[in-house]
Each structure stands twice: as structure tokens, then as C-alpha cells.
Computed example of a mutant assay.
Amino acid sequence: MTLIRAVSVAVCLAGLWAGVAVAEAPKDPAAAAREAADQLEKAAVELQGAVDARDRVKALTETVRAYEAGLEAMRDGLRRAALREAQLSRRLEAREGEIAQLMGVLLTIETSPPPVLMLHPQGPLGSARSAMILAEVTPELNVKAQDLRHDLEEVQTLRLLQQNAAQTLEDGLSGVQQARAALSQAIADRTDLPRRFTADPVRTAILISSTETLAGFASGLSEMSDKPIADSDGDISAQKGALPMPVQGVVLHKSGSADAAGIKRPGIVVATRPRALVTSPTAATIRYRGPLLDLGNVVILEPQPDMLIILSGLAEVYGEAGQVIPAGTPVGLMGGKVPEIGAILSLSGDGTGAERSETLYIEIREAGRPVDPETWFRTDKDG
């Protein structure tokens, strides 16, 4: 290739590269995934400490939360890594021909002997002009070559990250399963919670059998005890609009909107991951826990007089009716089966939210009437 041809191709390539609109890269996906791995390692250390902690329920609850946050971050990091790898791969494939030309130009400039580079059909003046053009273009070509090398190295790093993620995820899933089992046992062994009443199983059974709606059951809760239920002095009015969500997830259906079956309900539906931990958003009395109607397992909490928080759709429920529990106390686990490692890795790049396969229904009733739960909870962010 002559010097004129080499310079001409180089100028064209430089223009083409400069015209490519490259979207600003988000925070390094590899770094995000590594941070998530560190979170999971920290959770493993916390689990060891939680076993010997005085308040084991609180310590284990924090440990499960740490594992859930770490696994969430790991999935998000892998998703972003997969998207970034796909973006880079598409970019490299789209410019395959130009990259080949670029490499050819760089190779020609690098290997051509100096006497040949100085020759020009128009004589010394042409050679001087070509040399000036070449002096301007060569740094640009080097920059593009550096960018190309960076992209290739990033693709390699991201692929290696995804290959190594399987063991990290496996350890994290094993750890959270162990923490959940320990938490269930710690709650069963707990004897230090105050009680407002003791539920009468016969009265409770009669109430359930005679109830056809959630509203009807909620209005008859006072009939569950053979003694009058002591008044509560709880007051969470100052927390209105700021209560934490009881589970990590996203709002799937708002109050009054139709669900997949076309049914409109006054509460909200939150999509969660399988086996997600559900906690009480505030200090409250457990008014009921167990199966109810067609709602699956239900937990009904009373944080203050004439107010009920109803959580339904759980697979497991904790505690006993009548107990007064602190804010953040676990009240149950969501159902579903945790996907295998391969399934998690395959879903990490689609960003569709398919991994949130479980739904928790949340309803709030004040003075016997339902109100929009979003007036009480912080739902602007994923929980």
C-alpha cells in the first residue's frame, strides 16, 4: 500500500471512528459484581456471629437481610455485566470491517521502511504534505487502537466474571438458606415477647368458618379471645408515608388497579423473589396468623387502635396471635422455589424481572375501611 493510500484510509477511518456515538458507560459492572461478592462474604461472617448473639432473632434477621441484599446486588451486577458485554460485542461486530482496515493501516505504517515512506509521486513537496497528514493521523489511530484493546479486555474480564460467579452465588444461596433455618428456630424458641391476649382456637375456627371476606374477618377479630383484648397505646401517625416496605420487591399492582385475573383490590401487590423474608414494618400486635379464605397464609398486624396491616400470600408465618413484636420482626417467608445457579445466570441478562415470581398482597384498614397502602409506605424505591 502506498503512502497516499495509507494516509487516505487512515483519514477515512479516523472520521468514521469519530462519528460513532458511544453511550456513556455506567458504573463499572465488574466492580459492582465484586462489591456484591464482598457483601455475601460479610454476610457469611455475620451468620457466624449471629449464632452466639444474645438477641439471636434480631441478629439472624439482619443476617438474612444482608444475604438478600448481597444476592440482589450480585444478580444486578451480573445483569449489568451481561448487558455491557452484549453492548461491546455488538459494537465490535458492527465495526469488524473497519477494525480490520485500521489494523492494516497500523501494520503498514509500522512495517514500511523509512525510504519507502518518504517517496511520493509529486516529489518532496508531496512527501512533506503527506508526512504532516501522517503526523496528525497517527496519534488518532493509536487512540483508536487503545480503545479497541480496552474493549476487548473488558469483554474478556466480563466473561471471566460471569464464569466465576457460579461459586459465589452457590455459597450465597447456601448461606441464606442456613440463616433462614436458624432464624425459624430462633423465633420458635423465643419466649420474651409481651402478649396482649391469648387466642381461643375454637372461637378462631368459628370466626374463620363463618367469614366469606377479608373485611368480615378483620371486623370480627375481637371475637378470637375468650377475654376482652386489652387496649393498645400504640401510635405510628408520625410515621405515615415513611414506613419501610415489609419485603424487598417492587409494586406490581397499585391500590384499586386490576390484577392478572381482572380483580380490583384496595391493597397493593408486591412482586418478590422466592423465599424472601417478610418483616413487620413497625411495632405491632399480631392479631392473626395462619391460612384464611383463598388468600394463603395471612398475617394481620395492629400497630395502633383502629388500624390493621394485612399481609397475605406467605408460605410460612412466624409468631403467635397476641404477641407484641418490635419493628423489623420477621413474620414470615414468601413461597416459591429458589432457581438453580444456571437459571439465575441465564436470567441475569434479560432484565425482565422474571426472577420475582412471588406476590405479597398488602392491605391497610383504618376504622374498618381500606386505605391506599402507599399513603403509609415508602414505595418509591425497590424494597
Rank of each mutant, 00 (worst) to 15 (best):
P201W: 07
R289F: 02
V317K: 01
M334V: 00
M224N: 09
D372I: 07
T157H: 11
M334Q: 12
A100L: 12
L3M: 11
P26F: 06
E154I: 00
L301K: 03
V251Y: 07
V371M: 08
L117F: 06
P114C: 00
N164G: 07
T191Y: 07
A354Y: 15
G322R: 10
T359D: 07
L92I: 09
R34I: 03
K58N: 10
I341Y: 09
D259W: 00
L71W: 04
R65E: 09
T379Y: 02
R75Q: 15
I300C: 01
I109M: 04
Q156V: 09
L292H: 02
P113L: 06
M103F: 00
T63P: 05
E153Y: 05
T211W: 08
D259R: 10
E363I: 00
A30P: 03
A21N: 13
S237T: 12
V7E: 02
K227S: 12
T272S: 15
A50K: 05
L277G: 05
L301S: 01
V278C: 06
P124S: 00
F217K: 03
V9A: 14
M1R: 07
R275D: 11
A82M: 09
A31L: 05
G322M: 01
R84A: 11
L207I: 02
Y67N: 11
L125I: 06
D151L: 02
G290W: 07
K144Q: 15
A367W: 12
Y361N: 03
L314V: 04
T213D: 03
T211F: 01
Q167A: 12
T168M: 04
L345Y: 08
R287E: 12
E136K: 11
Q185T: 08
A182L: 15
S8W: 05
A205G: 10
A258H: 13
G49R: 12
V57R: 09
E363K: 02
P266N: 10
M74C: 11
T168E: 11
L161K: 05
E223Y: 13
A242I: 04
S89R: 14
